[in-house]
Amino acid sequence: MLELRLVQGSLLKKVLEAIKDLVNDANFDCSATGFSLQAMDSSHVALVALLLRSEGFEHYRCDRNLSMGMNLGNMAKMLKCAGNDDIITLKADDGSDTVTFMFESPTQDKISDFEMKLMDIDSEHLGIPEAEYHAIVRMPSSEFGRICKDLSSIGDTVVISVTKEGVKFSTRGDIGTANIVCRQNNTVDKPEEATIIEMTEPVSLTFALRYMNSFTKATPLSSIVTLSLSSDLPVVVEYKIAEMGYIRFYLAPKIEE
């Protein structure tokens, strides 16, 4: 028996909007720790890892570990039917091939049930080693989203270079080139507007902008994004989900042939 009650149902709606275009089908894993997902895009270039900790739910019952295969497009369709202020409850019986989403309006005057078919998904769970990153950039998520969108109108790839002075996003295309430098700035009034760079050595990596732009669909989940870069690892683009966990996107770099 599984029963997860999330008072801030809009979080789950936002999570699905953030990942549904990157991953078609995925297993949601439910354990005492929380509600989680790990899935790769169909080209195996990007990986998304989601964790919503059990403590973040108003009610969290998960009698035994359960893996539920879902089509994320269909799940997003169902969650779109929940109001932004609705409480969302997920329910599944042991051995059932369906999951039920229950939506309650804040005043309890409207209660909806949506039952969705589960699917068998053969997916490999990858071990993501703990890593020391050469550079960690923390910046406003809206700023990062704007940069990725702007650069993708010029080129297909972005070179992210981190030095002590700042983080530079560069692209080139048929019409020309673009460079955007964000300097470290931790003296702003609001912490969510700061750009903070922790660096042990300079790093410069190239990534496909198509994927970066897809990751920025998680912007509504957090005002801050963290980019973790090492010369020999996929970049980690992390959006923390307040009080609950995180959504992390891993993207393999492009390298000179």
């Binding site: 790769m40 195996h44 270039v45 990007a46 990986l47 490999e124 769970h125 990858l126 071990g127 993501i128 080693p129 790839t157 190239t206 496909a208 690892l233 996929p234 891993y250 993207l251 393999a252 770099p253 492009k254 390298i255 000179e256 042939e257």
Partner: peptide
Amino acid sequence: PCLQRNILDYFNGE
């Protein structure tokens, strides 16, 4: 020309 690496080049199956 840049070659797109694969995430499986970095993370292994458990």
